[in-house]
Amino acid sequence: MTGPLALKPFLLAFPGPLRDRLVAAVLAGEKVATTGLLVEYEVEKEDLPEAGERSALIDSDGREVAVVEITEVHVLPLGEADLRLALGEGEGYRSVAEWRAGHESFWHGEEMREALGDPEFVVDDGTMLVVEWFRVVEVLRLGD
């Protein structure tokens, strides 16, 4: 495949070591779910993803490395996150508490607060999440 795909980008975390780990987990088949904040979609004025939608998975260098297809989308409060989600995230979490601690650390980080334009942003049980379940439909060649 040559040239850029006509797909919207599928971005995990911010560019850097965390994104690199998450992209590797997707390509290895370990990560089949991702969780974002509903407020992120509102701030970006972005539509929620829909089942059947395909996107280009982007690595930290901005390269399209795979095509993923959304299989399920759920909007739910943080307090309803379950073990299926924690395991589906493919980041080695063994419990909802571990998953939540890892995600809260990310969501409370400076990059997220800057992205949301809210230096005081915090999550709680009622914070609305957007959970995307997906599958890799094509791995793209790297390094032309």
Rank of each mutant, 00 (worst) to 15 (best):
R94W: 06
F121T: 01
A25Y: 04
L116A: 05
H74L: 12
V32T: 15
W107G: 01
R113I: 04
W107E: 01
V43Y: 05
A13Y: 01
A51P: 14
K45C: 07
R135F: 10
L129A: 07
L140P: 13
S60W: 06
I70C: 12
D47V: 02
A51D: 06
G52A: 10
E42P: 00
R63G: 02
A28D: 15
V39H: 04
F106R: 01
D144V: 07
G102Y: 07
F106H: 08
G3E: 05
G29T: 06
E80N: 09
V23M: 08
L57R: 03
R100G: 00
V65C: 07
M1E: 12
E98D: 14
F134H: 10
K8T: 11
R21K: 15
L22P: 00
H74G: 00
L142P: 04
V67A: 09
M128C: 00
G126T: 12
L78C: 11
G88V: 00
A28I: 01
A28V: 02
L57K: 02
E53I: 00
S60E: 06
V131I: 11
Y41F: 15
L18W: 05
G88Q: 03
V26T: 10
A81H: 01
A101R: 15
G62N: 13
L48P: 04
Y41K: 04
V131C: 14
G79I: 04
H103I: 02
L12V: 00
V68H: 06
V65E: 03
L78Q: 12
E120R: 13
